[in-house]
């Protein structure tokens, strides 16, 4: 339809030095019509200034009146509406469009006051030292998206153009630790109802990264293993190292895998929906070990496109390492343990 109603103005948004910027390939938002391949978006990080140029072109010989041109930087969390509604008009099956439920950033300023446009005009813009709270994310039910919106206000309908960009939040270990610490504290507080354990906090924070995940699990008289990941917090470039120690094995194991599962939980409180996606599937053992065997784990993460853990009011992204044992009859035995993944420089 756009073809027939060509807007009177053509808006183009360009970021400064966009070509030389790092780009990420982002899969098309799930549920969108377009069969377009992934977009390639420029990447910004928290605290960066986002600057660029807006060119508004008017068709030759035409004059466009406008009530002003403004540029807005928006960061929003989009959610799929409650799935229940979609049943009515299932004909157009994909009514799973995400709607923004919170714009956590919305900064606007005018590029130009009301006036006339009779030739193409460029306006530089700059949002200085933007603090961006969340990392960009495109998931099944949730998106975190950032974009620049340029609006040419008119009497009738406004003409606007959106230019998305991608945000990485680089954190250093200390930050992540703090966050972990906090959430832990919170949950503890909830559980313990106000019992304070301030004294220990400092000590814990130091060792929290080095504290390995160690678990001792099994099925009675059948399998008993002990596994260990050297860390519980990983950067995206990290290597997962660990080992599995077989204390008892009566299973006829065919093989054993380590998978990394990204769990997206969205929605408000109780009514949230969970979507799991397996980001990595990695065979770590072939055949059946005997009692006393130790199987090493080493998984380079940098080669995979992983999502760091995110937590906010509307959704959570959590990462789990799942150890899966498949026996000769095809039965699967698994144990998941959460790990924090953060993006580091």
């Amino acid at each position: 339809m756009n073809l027939f109603f060509k807007p009177p103005v053509d808006i183009e948004i360009l970021f400064d030095k966009e070509d030389s910027r790092k780009h990420v390939e982002v899969l098309p938002a799930s549920g969108s019509h377009s069969k377009v391949l992934g977009d390639s978006l420029p990447v910004y990080e928290d605290g960066e200034s986002i600057s660029g140029n807006v060119t508004v072109r008017v068709r030759e010989g035409k004059i466009v009146e406008h009530l002003g041109i403004k540029v807005t930087l928006i960061g929003s969390i989009d959610l799929v509406k409650a799935a229940g509604n979609s049943t009515s008009n299932s004909y157009k099956s994909i009514d799973v469009r995400k709607r923004s439920i919170e714009q956590f950033i919305c900064m606007t300023y005018d590029l130009s006051p009301a006036g006339e446009l009779n030739h193409s005009q460029s306006f530089p813009f700059k949002f200085k030292d933007m603090s961006m709270q969340f990392e960009s994310y495109r998931g099944k039910n949730v998106d975190v998206s950032y974009y620049i919106k340029v609006t040419v206000m008119k009497k009738g309908t406004d003409i606007s153009k959106i230019k998305p960009f991608w945000v990485y939040l680089y954190k250093d270990l200390e930050e992540v630790k703090k966050i972990v610490e906090q959430t832990k504290k919170m949950s503890e507080q909830k559980k313990a109802n106000g019992i304070k354990k301030n004294d220990k906090d400092d000590k814990n924070s130091d060792s929290i990264e080095k504290k390995p995940i160690k678990l001792d699990i099994g099925i009675e008289n059948c399998l008993h293993i002990e596994f260990e990941y050297t860390k519980s917090i990983f950067s995206l470039k990290d290597v997962i190292v660990g080992r599995i120690y077989f204390l008892l094995t009566r299973l006829k194991i065919k093989h054993m895998e380590l998978s990394l599962i990204t769990r997206e939980s969205s929605g408000l409180q109780q009514s949230n929906t969970l979507v799991d996606s397996t980001a990595i599937r990695y065979e770590i053992m072939d055949g059946s070990p005997v009692k006393g065997e130790t199987i090493p784990i080493r998984l380079f993460m940098s080669g995979y496109d992983l999502t760091p853990s995110i937590s906010c009011n509307y959704f959570d992204i959590k990462n789990y390492l799942s150890l899966v044992i498949i026996d000769e009859d095809g039965r699967r035995y698994f144990k998941q343990s959460e790990i924090k993944i953060y993006r580091s420089k």
Partner: peptide, 13 residues
């Protein structure tokens, strides 16, 4: 040699 432990199937190992 450490990594070779991952293959526990006798013949393949």
């Amino acid at each position: 040699i450490e990594m070779c432990r991952g293959v526990q199937n006798p013949m393949r190992g």
